[in-house]
């Protein structure tokens, strides 16, 4: 009876793995898939450690997904010569990140906070920021080194895409029918979100022109209509306003500054937001209580004319226009010496 492993088994395994990896990568490249980065806690933590750059040379951005799409970092840096540190997180509220920056005595910089009302004025959506903050706080030297090794690999292999080509993504894409009311797997089409190393998120050109893909994302946003949670109000809203005001005051007390932005939305998304979160009761109150400058896209004709292809985020071309206009407004109002 055989009692030993054969070296031929190991050689065959190695050969099959190499054949699979090369074929899979070539196939995806042939399908037009491009390389991008996993927008997880590792990349976020790597970006978070950059906030201590001199405040006259960098500006930090926090928010939800919209500012990740709508701020074109290359355009911003070209126009302002200031490093844009993108700390926004998709599908989340930026409030815990704001608190973290406010409580960090070493952070004395300038901050732009983008407000997506349904997430900002909510006590949900803190899972990703909390995970990112915990990872940043507890990162080990080994994890930092793994990040440095991982990023060059990720930048060369298209199949390394956790959201699209990992086992769990394949299972989710089977669309097995669920029991009623179960929160489904959100199958965003390929090209909807390509993340760069600086955490800029972009739609692919193919996505922007493909009506079918855009409609798929609109249908996902449509699921939000099923959420029975009413907009935040009363005591809960008071607490949020107080917390944000307190955090902003801490940053200002150290010589930093804060500007709020409201990036564009379109279609039923915009209608629902206007209906559920009237500007006077939420946005205007936020600016009044914090004493900060606010840039609401609808107040500026160029920004107001922008349309989101899937109702919630700007296309790369729209992002360039938005960023140009944002910089112009900041320069016109002589904010932060731009």
């Amino acid at each position: 009876m055989k009692t030993q492993l054969s070296v031929k088994s190991a050689a065959l395994a190695l050969l099959l793995v190499l054949a699979f990896v090369i074929s899979w990568e070539l196939y995806l490249r042939h399908q037009g898939v491009v390389t991008d980065y996993d927008d997880g806690p590792e990349l976020w933590a790597h970006t978070r450690e950059q906030v201590y750059e001199p405040s006259d040379k960098s500006i930090v951005f926090i928010g939800s997904s919209r500012i990740k799409y709508d701020l074109d970092i290359a355009t911003w840096q070209g126009l302002t010569n200031k490093h844009a540190i993108q700390l926004a997180m998709v599908a989340s509220s930026p409030r815990h990140i704001l608190t973290n920056l406010a409580n960090d005595p070493k952070f004395k910089g300038k901050l732009i906070i983008d407000v997506t009302e349904v997430l900002f004025f909510s006590n949900r959506g803190n899972a990703s920021p909390d995970a990112g903050l915990a990872y940043y706080k507890e990162r080990t030297p080994a994890q930092k080194l793994s990040f440095l090794i991982d990023k060059p690999i990720e930048s060369r292999l298209a199949f390394l895409n956790n959201g699209k080509y990992a086992i769990n993504a394949f299972i989710g894409e089977m669309h097995i029918p669920n029991r009623p009311m179960v929160y489904p797997f959100l199958d965003f089409p390929q090209g909807f979100g390509i993340t760069l190393l600086n955490r800029q998120t972009k739609m692919s050109a193919d996505f922007v022109t493909d009506t079918n893909k855009r409609n798929k994302v609109k249908a996902i946003w449509g699921l939000l209509k099923n959420d029975p949670t009413p907009p935040m109000s009363g005591k809960a809203l008071d607490l949020v306003m107080q917390s944000v005001t307190r955090d902003v005051a801490k940053i200002k007390a150290r010589g930093g500054d804060v500007v709020f932005t409201r990036t564009p939305s379109s279609g039923f998304f915009l209608m629902a937001e206007n209906h559920m979160f009237p500007r006077e009761a939420y946005w205007n109150r936020l600016l009044k209580e914090t004493g900060c400058k606010g840039i609401y896209y609808a107040d500026y004709p160029v920004m107001a004319s922008l349309t989101c292809p899937e109702f919630s985020h700007l296309s790369p071309a729209g992002a360039i226009t938005y960023t140009h206009t944002l910089v112009n407004i900041l320069k016109h109002d002589k904010i932060w010496g731009l």
């Binding site: 055989k2 088994s9 065959l12």
Partner: peptide, 27 residues
């Protein structure tokens, strides 16, 4: 494993490695 034909063990071993790669798990 030692009792399996060498080619079958090679295929199983490759499958384990491919699934590890496809998991794309963070550390």
């Amino acid at each position: 494993s030692a009792k399996l034909p060498w080619w079958l063990l090679g295929i199983v071993w490759a499958l384990l490695l491919i699934l590890i790669i496809l998991s794309q798990g963070t550390s």
